[in-house]
Design a protein around this nucleic acid. Structure first.
Lengths: 123, 123
DNA sequence: ATAGTGCTTAGACTATGGTCTAAGTCAACC
DNA sequence: GGTTGACTTAGACCATAGTCTAAGCACTAT
């Protein structure tokens, strides 16, 4: 699979796919003409990167994970620890957004109840 | 209130407070010596900016809100619409994080159940 | 009066995560 | 054999959100 197909499939631009490779998040083999040749495994991996990114993992962390992955099976426990640690971050984020929603709702509620004649410069 | 006190109070660095002013998010009066002189109203406003930022509102949006606020009471309905619109964003974010957590948990669960002898390069 | 502190400004620099350009290669089609 | 199209590379450029530096002024304490 060529980069343009990969870009279409994953909705990640060719630019970004090359960028990820430059940043050593992805390692892709080349064909006889020197072009990137993505296989099934690469697709899986890129989809996983996508999910990690969606959960707010910075690229340098994803790179760490990628490096461990490249080292082989003996790094599985380490990788799992990374995911468990990241999980705590995601839980915290989720709770933060819930709290933020409460705050915002309170604000909007306040906005709705105060008479329009009072001074509104505070908001 | 002087900038250093404000920085301490809000945990926003002096650099950032000046930056916000340069970006026209905040308008602060000066004392006889030309130094920023924050009052109660400014504190409230900066705390509100903080909350908007926490809920992922970009600075340019906050500036828009700030501009409306500066225009006076007649912009209240517009400001309220902004908050309501932003609320939808926050709700979506909250749901996204909940979904992300599910995905990650499924991943970790999978990690936990597969025998350690299989090929792990997929993760 | 001179050093020190705390502010002022403009503008340079940083990090993150892309996004794009320029120049070049290679295979295929006409 | 020339053009087209899809790729290659290095490196420039962009937006966001700061973060810091340099040079300078005003007041205070010694």
């Amino acid at each position: 699979m060529i980069i343009s197909e990969m870009a279409q499939l994953t909705k990640i631009s060719e630019y970004t796919l090359r960028y990820y490779e430059k940043k050593e998040l992805i390692i892709v083999s080349r064909d006889a003409r020197g072009r990137r040749n993505y296989d099934e495994n690469d697709i899986e991996w890129i989809r996983f990167i996508q999910r990690l990114k969606e959960t707010g993992m910075p690229l340098r962390e994803i790179k760490k994970y990628s490096d461990l992955r490249a080292e082989g099976d003996q790094t599985i426990p380490e990788r799992r620890v990374m995911l468990e640690t990241h999980r705590l971050f995601v839980v915290a984020e989720q709770q933060k957004w819930t709290q933020n929603l409460c705050n915002l709702d309170a604000k909007i509620e306040y906005y709705a109840t105060i008479p329009l004649t009072t001074d509104q410069t505070k908001f």
